[in-house]
């Protein structure tokens, strides 16, 4: 059973399709990194998942059931922007959360607050953006959730605390929790996540297991003795994501079967054909860029 199952989710605001037929799932115990440029629909997807917005169409299930208040007994959410009560202190928030959750771990909350160097007597309104994010993270992890939904959980944090967030996600995952998190930092995603989903303009443009994607997605590079010819036969090949030509070099970003594509290129009589690995960042950029470059 999947911890999170989003099927054909569409959310429109007037004429604008904020999320357009997105399907993604996080298997039980999996960690999925949601990537995409600003305005790609990540936060809207989260809002629909958490019943904060009503989907225009599509279905969403958490642990095999539609999302209800019962879901929130074991699901924790860290929103992108601080949504805490600015007039109340960190300690007030900890107390309010303790009262709302049977699973709240007071000792853990104190440890985490110390990790992020939070002064529990301070009002939220007096904290920096990063500190507010840290409070939300402390509250989310202290309830020892089975499902975590984190929208840009490291935004505004300094590098040391970003690392702490990464450690928390990995620790939660090792404890069996399922995680869906968005991030602008590929470095975090390639460490913490085992799968990714990439949104662009509300549409899902790539999803899959990171290691499988790294195994499949390659750059096939051919060098010619004179100007590189255009590989007409491969322009619409489903294996090819993108074609770049510059001078004597022809570079193809392929989504699968790099060896097959390399073979096909031999017909153009290049001097050399090489296959290169792609980092997750290359794969991400390849997915969000606009076709032929």
């Amino acid at each position: 059973m999947n911890a999170i199952e989003i099927a054909n989710l569409t959310k429109t605001y007037g004429a604008q399709r904020a999320v357009d037929d997105v399907s993604l799932s996080v298997p039980d115990g999996g960690v999925c990194g949601l990537l995409g440029p600003n305005g790609a629909g990540k936060s809207t997807t989260f809002k629909c998942l958490l019943t904060l917005a009503r989907p225009t169409s599509g279905t969403i299930e958490v642990a095999g059931a539609p999302v209800s208040p019962k879901t929130f007994e074991y699901l924790a959410y860290v929103p992108e922007t601080s949504a805490l009560f600015s007039k109340y202190t960190v300690a007030d928030h900890i107390e309010a959360t303790r009262r709302a959750y049977g699973t709240f771990d007071v000792k853990r909350a104190a440890e985490l607050a110390a990790t992020f160097k939070l002064d529990s007597k301070k009002r939220i309104g007096k904290l920096s953006k990063g500190q507010r994010t840290a409070v939300a993270i402390v509250l989310a992890f202290a309830i020892r959730p089975r499902v975590l939904v984190l929208d840009e959980p490291a935004s505004g944090l300094d590098p040391m605390f970003q690392r702490a967030v990464l450690d928390l996600i990995i620790d939660a995952s090792a404890g069996g929790a399922s995680v869906l998190f968005s991030s602008h930092q590929i470095g975090q995603v390639e460490r913490a996540a085992d799968s990714i989903a990439v949104l662009k303009g509300g549409k899902l443009v790539l999803r899959g297991d990171i290691d499988t994607l790294k195994g499949d997605e390659k750059i096939v590079e051919a060098i010619f003795s004179s100007d590189a010819p255009s590989p007409n036969g491969l322009a619409n090949d489903p294996r090819v994501r993108r074609i770049e030509r510059s001078g004597r070099i022809l570079r193809l970003h392929v989504a699968s079967d790099a060896a097959g594509v390399a073979n096909a290129l031999q017909s153009l009589a290049p001097k050399t054909v090489d296959v290169f690995d792609l980092s997750l960042e290359d794969i991400f950029l390849g997915a969000v860029s606009d076709g032929v470059a």
Binding site: G29, G30, V31, R163, L166, D167, I170, D171, S173, A174, G175, R191, A192, A193, D194, I210, D211
Partner: peptide, 13 residues
């Protein structure tokens, strides 16, 4: 778990 935490990489990996 120990190795995942140690290397800061996903435990499933």
């Amino acid at each position: 778990k120990a190795l995942a935490v140690d290397l800061t990489i996903n435990p499933n990996t």
